[in-house]
Design a binder for these strands. Structure first.
Lengths: 226, 226
DNA sequence: ACCTGAACACCGTTCAAGT
DNA sequence: ACCTGAACACCGTTCAAGT
């Protein structure tokens, strides 16, 4: 939990913030702990950032900025969307808790807006209404963010379960799984049995969802074109 | 902020919790305020719920329970999915902060699992792999939750913006909008100009996104069938 | 069985005061 | 310009003690 003595500059505070997020996660992140990491007192941080929220906003914007830069614009629009979304995801993986940060942040920051703009450009030539273009991109972006958010939450629960008495909560889970109320076949249990739950958050699952959304957008364009 | 004198039972605590969430939102929700509302001391709550997290888990499960009950199972699978997703959304609208609650909650609660199961049943007969079924439903459910989450966040920012000096932050926003870095046409600005931002979170937008995802799933099934 | 008072170990943030 | 000490108004949670 120590860091080399550094000048207390905005970039260095941000660097330390990323490290702290990586170490303890966003729910335990505090201005006091960040100050400790930088060997200063907590109130000092408020000279550089007017609030914790504004610090988070800055972090989120950094993710948006890097995501936008990694976009390449060649090939069919489907490829472009796929590539862009994958890039956004890989940038998000690089930065700890980036999904939570983006979620809590309003896309009023310039780089976030620019990212949305470049996504909108990709679908701008499609023969659908502006409203539909907007919905499509919102859907895609939501998907990418929610996917990483889920993965994070999943991990958090997994570790919490392991901590709790070996097989205690795990047993509870298997129990509710076994006797699902509501008629019909127990599809969830079959999938759990086949180890599908371990695939949660995998690259493969990400790509499948992405394909679904892009194919759906294509379908929308095709219908409108008729 | 008062409530009639009530017996302190688990259901009444839950009722008060919903009211408090409605009044002040999830980020300001505290066990102490909940206790105030019930005219008891904060530690008393810990006799009924072992933690704030477990209280939230219970609330989330209530949403899942009601959502599951409102599912009807007739018509084509596309209609069923559409209807189910719409129902889940309308239940979520009924309960304040339900998106946040579901997001923070692991789907290990029985009713949440049952909800996922009934969604999986709808696509179970499609000619795709279990993994793809799983991805499809995860994608759909993520969409519904993230949609409401975004709407909530959007509202929070809007009110924050209005509070901040008339047109101060608003001006900032227009500014970043006007001079977006990165080449290409400014699609975002055009859309903002056409009032599309006011459509954020609308029924119309919800349905469009839903159609995209369902059409995408259909596409997946069609490809695999060949 | 159910509730309280007092306490612990934390928060974010402000502000006068220091250098 | 940049940092600190002290303080304010909060948190979630525990626990001995009350009824």
């Amino acid at each position: 939990m120590r860091i080399k003595n550094l000048q207390i500059t905005e970039p260095n505070i941000i660097k330390a913030a990323w490290e702290l997020l990586d170490q303890i996660g966003i729910e335990d992140f505090s201005m006091r702990k960040l100050a400790d990491l930088l060997h200063i007192q907590a109130p000092s941080l408020y000279w550089h950032f007017k609030s914790k929220q504004s610090l988070f906003q800055t972090l989120a914007n950094e993710v948006a900025k890097e995501a936008r830069q990694s976009a390449k614009l060649e090939g069919e629009w489907e490829e472009q969307l796929f590539h862009c979304a994958s890039m956004i995801r890989s940038v998000m993986i690089k930065y700890p808790c980036s999904a939570q940060l983006l979620m809590r942040t309003v896309p009023s920051e310039p780089d976030y807006l620019a990212l949305i703009n470049s996504l909108l450009q990709i679908v701008d030539h499609l023969p659908v209404s502006d409203s539909d273009k907007f919905s499509s991109i919102a859907c895609l972006l939501n998907y990418v963010i929610a996917f990483e958010l889920d993965k994070y939450e999943q991990r958090r629960v997994d570790t919490a379960m392991k901590k709790e008495a070996e097989g205690g909560a795990q047993g509870m889970f298997m129990d509710s799984l076994a006797r699902l109320s509501g008629g019909g076949p127990n599809v969830v249990q079959r999938m759990h049995h086949n180890g599908l739950f371990r695939e949660l958050g995998s690259d493969n699952m990400f790509r499948t969802g992405l394909k679904i959304i892009i194919a759906g957008i294509a379908q929308l364009a095709q219908q409108q074109a008729r």
